[in-house]
Nucleic acid binder design. Sequence first.
DNA 1: CGGAATAACGAACAATCGCTTGCTGGACCT
DNA 2: AGGTCCAGCAAGCGATTGTTCGTTATTCCG
Lengths: 216, 216
Amino acid sequence: MGSGDGQGVKPVGDRGRDGSEQAADSAPGQSRRDELLDRAGELMAAKGYDGTSMRDIARAVGMLPGSLYYHFPSKEALFLALHDRMVDTMQARVDAALDAPTDPWDRLEAACVAHVEGLIATGNLLAIVSPGFLDERDAISARIRAERSRYEQRFRHLVAALPLPAGVDRRVLRLHLFGALNWVPTWFDPGGGLTPEQIARQIFAVFRAAYPPAQG
Amino acid sequence: MGSGDGQGVKPVGDRGRDGSEQAADSAPGQSRRDELLDRAGELMAAKGYDGTSMRDIARAVGMLPGSLYYHFPSKEALFLALHDRMVDTMQARVDAALDAPTDPWDRLEAACVAHVEGLIATGNLLAIVSPGFLDERDAISARIRAERSRYEQRFRHLVAALPLPAGVDRRVLRLHLFGALNWVPTWFDPGGGLTPEQIARQIFAVFRAAYPPAQG
DNA sequence: CGGAATAACGAACAATCGCTTGCTGGACCT
DNA sequence: AGGTCCAGCAAGCGATTGTTCGTTATTCCG
């Protein structure tokens, strides 16, 4: 209760709404906080938000449960920071992939590949939130939706740039594509012979074949 | 392990439980147990498995928490029964839709429409389990996966019956389709102007267009 | 050297969790 | 009338949850 924001002590420069640049994760400068998020991310990706207790996280990082509250004021805040960081990572990934290609179809395909690769690499943490587990729960919903929307906007633009025949509902097309991609972590098998990239390209190939560039 | 574990007792006589019964809620034959599953399903679909406590369910159905354990030996068993019943419902729905059409493409499309309609109707309970929230948790995993696989087999057969050009990976195609469909409840808006059927058909249209029946 | 700031320990808190048990009113059958 | 079983109440158990708080070590800084 309290809701008292007293506690004003902030460990590091957490303030600032701007996207702080976070470089490679192996940097020594990134103190404990990021490693904490790493472990928490792994756990939550594997066992879910509710399935991961603060004690689990503390144990995974070699701390006592109470010590976590020095870095994050609550479990919710921890998850929020985690989600935030992951969205940033994904976005950076997609942006990097969009550097080279110029053709609208190639650009969207590159983004899709980066997206799936990111999903697999981050342990499917993004998909955890999506179906509405946390969405319908607390006030986290708002921020999560906002970050998610911000990320999806990239894809909105990419789809908008596509040369499609008139009458095609680009929204449904985008959500169709997104759903198929986001579902991949559910069935992906590292030893299945198919890489995330191959899967993404196969999925994308259907769209390409459905709306061929041929004029006629 | 007794999978069925008996328990098949039907309460039968539910007549005149109390005088305040006014509206024919559902089928008269199914008494308390099914209503219990209904309410539990709504709650879990909205707040997740962990987010829904036995006390929540008891309150929703007008009982005391301990009384639930007369009907189900555990929360896990309750969820299992719920999941089981829902898979049956979905399968019946798909089977009914497959009654009429004969063309492979039409058949798969009908199944997809029934699938999405079922997802929306059941409050997206199926999608809850999918991403791996419960999968990686307990021994429920086994049974859930089995039921899920049984249901998906329908789609496996439908995809197998499709006249596709050689070299197309039918597994990825099926999972692509399934992912897109299962993702629909995430973004479906009842007042959005599109019915579940329309959405399913739009998604399916992409596949149809990608592999046209023309023999070229 | 001395005082902040950092980062954690150690122990507990109230609340909630799934679940168990003993019991009882009433419907049904004979 | 008596017996049986359904269906639920009432109360509490042990465990776990997120969280708080006072207290320390260690480091930085002038």
